[in-house]
Amino acid sequence: MKPAKIITLLALILILCMAAMPTSAHRVIVQGQVSEIQIRAYFGGGSADPMAYADVEIYAVRGGQEELYKTGKTNDTGMYYFQPLIGVSEYRAVVEATGHRGEEWVNLTEGAGITEAEQEEAEDEAGLPLTGIIAGFGYLTGLAGIAMFLTARKMKKQYENK
């Protein structure tokens, strides 16, 4: 072999070696995460009507510190969507419309989805509160009794004074 040929061959091997390991120079990190959080706002009391076009404020919670991350409005079906920040897993969503206000904490590390049990509980809360109605009537009867008792005592006192 001629020396020139050997040098060419060595150079070729060197180039090949460099081309074969391009990734070793920069470490690439790929992270996966849920890209959208869905907020649903609706009225309780049996009808579950959506809170449409309500103001939404999303607060990102970083190390116990809250900061306003996004503001917007729900759509006609009471939904609002936002992208979570990478590295922030806790959010507080506040929905407000003409004096009505509700809030919800979303924590991605605890599983952002709503479990079946949670959904059932929410539907129970949004349903017609029959026990509440019955309890309310009970309280009213009791209050009426107390009021009757107090006014009767007042009447008796007036009668005695006369």
């Binding site: 009225f43 009391g45 049996g46 009808s47 009507d49 959506p50 449409a52 006609d76 017609l128 109605i133």
Partner: peptide, 10 residues
């Protein structure tokens, strides 16, 4: 508790 749905609200 008696609701009526009107437009975007209840």
């Amino acid at each position: 508790l008696v609701h009526i749905s009107v437009g975007p609200t209840s």
